[in-house]
Design a protein around this nucleic acid. Structure first.
Length: 744
DNA sequence: GTGCCAGGTTTTTTT
DNA sequence: AACCTGGCAC
């Protein structure tokens, strides 16, 4: 029997969705294809649990992948259940675990005031270990070391065990770094991202009473984007649910694109084995895309072996064909995208905010941005990571130092920012002296500034010393200020007293934009004012440490979105352009060797394709410059899985579809395919034979008819400038552009 | 200690 | 092409 709330909650759900919402007892695996109403299912399920519980509201834990997803989910639940009864926790794995550890971490030696190490901190620690070991950073790149250590932690492997299990040269080396790295973290009251999960699991395992309390509290556990969880995260969820078994995981292995961050696709493929008796619900109806787009997506993903078979379908219209465009180079590609967008806007097909351009690597956004500026198209680039900008990190370092005077990494980051006559030598001397008298560098500085007795023995020259004293006083002032004012005011005070504002305000455009960023940071900080001086500082830093740039994304401004394929997951747009679909870029050159990584590249493209509601454009270029050097490119092998009947356009990549790119045998034929496709035998290369002259009428496969404006000889080729009606003037290389002479 | 130049490296993806 | 590093002059 349903309570009165439930009808609204269950309304407008299809049968599969309804099953996913109402199957609340026992383990449940929801396989949610793209556009199948996944978020809807999750929020309605939570609402259902809350509304159905009557007088005994259950504790619910919902874990998401991003803070943004968590916020959205919370908002949508609130709309469904305005009375908000029950105990609901929604957050990312990291945020939830951080909270648990602050509250209950002391039994395993974690101080409640620990700091979350960012990547800078991590790298600083690894570098320090390398220095101690006398290892060359060139031969043992800190990032590679860190990645190995992170992989180990994702698998819940402690240092001692890792030393035994390492099974490659890099791993062996990382295994040497790991224990010392961990020691340094502990010494500095730091937990890295992986520690947040790993230590929580350790807490649960070593202190069953604590685990029991959380099991008692979270009677229902829900995991979103389950395909992206790593072993540690899954273990965390599994521990919580082991007793009541009320665990619901939602995901789609076809959209697993984070293995490089140690996500384990095995979690989703093995869930049923781990929880016998699991109900499985498959959401197969797509409400997002046209039939053409969905069909293309299905064909694209089909060759993957590590997946469960599904039969996605949609009742939507067939829609337009997919457009494939072959560009001469990345500039022409960007020009094409901009021009097409102008056309779509002019035709009223979509607003800028409903259009996205997606690419494999962030570097690709540059050309696009340049071209969009030229065309005066409103656009925004997602992924210029706010919290990774220098000015933001510097200011956060000041804040962290106010809160935790022993934060050595922050201390060293800003000791000479803005420049205040304290160079590497002075810093080294300070460190040395601090070690001698048995304090941390920031403490030693404090002794100097306060003219403590011990300062007398300080072997630092007068000039450097006075610079240090002044800096020490400054820090003292800021620290005292932090106890009296909320974090937003504190930031303003820092800008003033440190001279940071003048440092940024150098009259350049870049300086102006950096100042804007700082203002933005203060605006964000304002939101924490309610917590009072110290509370706002703590809460703000916690938030900043766990913030991801994808969280920044908001659709408020009506601008075209430029975004990486990874960051596009979870979003949708009327019109999607995916650019740079070339061998070496997508699939990326670093993934081409390994079949597993190749499958992930395919999933990545699948994610991009399935973001589109109505129109999809796929483009590639014949040459592209990379690290300042030009290179010839081949179309992506994935084009071979695109049925030609779904495609419009004359690009060679789809004119001669080879067989699927999925099997090894066919991969070896990649070259023969592109070779035969690269030159049509029907006279299209005539342009290389018949010299073009100004005034000639020509036809371009995509731009249509145009008139040659001028011709310049270039390296034995002709650079032809052509005017096409309604398009910007194009400069093309005759041998590549496949211009056909119509009349002279 | 700072600023400038040469030379080498880079970003694939980010909670 | 842009960025960081290391070496050098001031």
């Amino acid at each position: 029997m349903l309570h009165r709330h439930s009808s609204a909650i269950l309304d407008r759900l299809n049968p599969a969705q309804r099953r996913a919402v109402t199957t609340v007892d026992g383990p449940l695996l929801v396989l949610a294809g793209p556009g199948s109403g996944k978020t809807r299912v999750i929020t309605h399920r939570i609402a259902y649990l809350l509304a159905e519980s009557g007088g005994d509201p259950p504790g619910i834990l919902a874990v998401t992948f991003t803070n943004k997803a968590a916020r959205e989910m919370l908002e949508r639940v609130r709309v469904l259940v305005p009375q908000g009864n029950g105990d609901l926790t929604i957050g990312t794995f990291h945020a939830v675990c951080a909270r648990i550890l602050r509250r209950d971490g002391s039994p395993i030696g974690i101080p409640p005031s620990f700091t979350i190490a960012d990547e800078d901190d991590q790298l600083a620690m690894v570098r320090r270990v390398l220095r101690e070991l006398n290892w060359d950073e060139k031969r043992f790149p800190p990032r590679a070391m860190l990645s190995c250590i992170s992989a180990a932690k994702s698998l819940l492997i402690e240092p001692a065990e890792f030393a035994v299990r390492a099974n490659s040269y890099v791993e062996e080396r990382a295994a040497v770094v790991y224990p010392r790295y961990q020691e340094l973290l502990v010494q500095h009251d730091l937990l890295d991202f992986d520690d947040l999960i790993m230590r929580t699991v350790a807490l649960f395992r070593e202190h069953p009473a604590v685990l029991d309390r959380y099991r008692e509290r979270f009677r229902h556990v829900l995991v979103d984007e389950f395909q992206d969880t790593n072993v540690a995260q899954y273990t965390f969820a599994r521990l919580l649910a082991a007793e009541h078994r009320n665990i619901c995981v939602v995901g789609d292995e076809d959209q697993s694109i984070y293995s490089w961050r140690h996500a384990d696709i095995g979690n989703i493929l093995n869930f049923e084995r781990d929880f016998p008796g699991t109900h499985v619900v498959v959401l197969e109806q797509n409400y997002r895309s046209t039939r053409t787009i969905l069909q293309a997506a299905r064909r694209l993903i089909a060759p993957n072996t590590m997946r469960k078979e599904k039969s996605l379908f949609t009742e939507n219209d067939v829609g337009e064909r997919i457009v494939v465009f072959e560009a001469y180079d990345e500039n022409e590609e960007a020009g094409y995208v901009a021009t097409q967008i102008e056309r779509l806007l002019a035709a009223g097909v979509a607003r800028p905010g409903e259009i996205a351009v997606m690419y494999r690597t962030n570097a690709q956004s540059r050309v696009l941005e340049k071209e969009f500026l030229r065309h005066r198209l409103p656009h925004r680039v997602v992924g210029m990571r706010f919290y990774e900008r220098k000015e933001i990190r510097d200011l956060l370092a000041y804040l962290r130092l106010c809160r935790n005077p022993h934060d050595v990494a922050s201390f060293e980051r800003i000791i000479n920012v803005p420049p205040r006559q304290i160079g590497a030598k002075t810093l080294a001397d300070l460190r040395q002296w601090a070690r001698e008298i048995g304090v941390t560098a920031p403490e030693a500085l404090e002794l100097l500034a306060e003219d403590d007795d011990r300062a007398a023995g300080c072997p630092i020259g007068a000039r450097a010393r006075s610079a240090l004293v002044e800096f020490g006083r400054l820090l003292g002032i800021l620290r005292r200020a932090s106890a009296e004012m909320v974090v937003a005011r504190l930031l303003e005070r820092i800008l003033e007293l440190t001279g940071y504002r003048e440092l940024l305000d150098d009259g350049t455009e870049e300086g102006e934009s950096r100042l804007d960023n700082v203002r933005e940071l203060i605006t964000v900080a304002e939101e924490f004012s309610g917590y009072g001086p110290e509370g706002s500082l703590a809460a703000f830093l916690e938030d900043a440490a766990l913030a991801a740039d994808a969280d920044e994304y908001d659709r408020a401004s009506d601008a075209v979105t430029l975004i990486t394929l990874h960051a596009a997951k979870g979003l949708e747009f009327d019109v999607v352009f995916i650019v740079g679909l070339e061998e070496g870029l997508c699939p990326h050159s670093r993934s081409i060797e390994d079949p597993r990584q190749l499958e992930e590249e395919r999933r990545l493209l699948y994610v991009g394709v399935t973001r589109a509601r109505r129109r999809l454009f796929l483009t590639y270029a014949n040459r592209r410059s990379h690290f300042g050097e030009g290179s010839i490119r081949e179309p992506s092998r994935f084009f071979r899985d695109l049925p030609p009947e779904l495609v419009q356009g004359t690009a060679r990549a789809v004119q001669r579809p080879g067989r699927s790119s999925g099997s090894v045998r066919q991969q070896s034929r990649a070259h023969s395919f592109t070779d035969t496709g690269s030159r049509e035998p029907d006279g299209q290369q005539a342009s290389a034979v018949i010299p073009l002259r100004p005034g000639d009428r020509v036809v371009h496969p995509t731009f249509g008819q145009g008139v040659v404006v001028s011709v310049v000889d270039r390296d034995g080729d002709q650079e032809v400038t052509v005017a096409f009606p309604n398009l910007p003037i194009k400069r093309l290389l005759a041998s590549y552009a496949r211009l056909r002479l119509v009349s002279s």
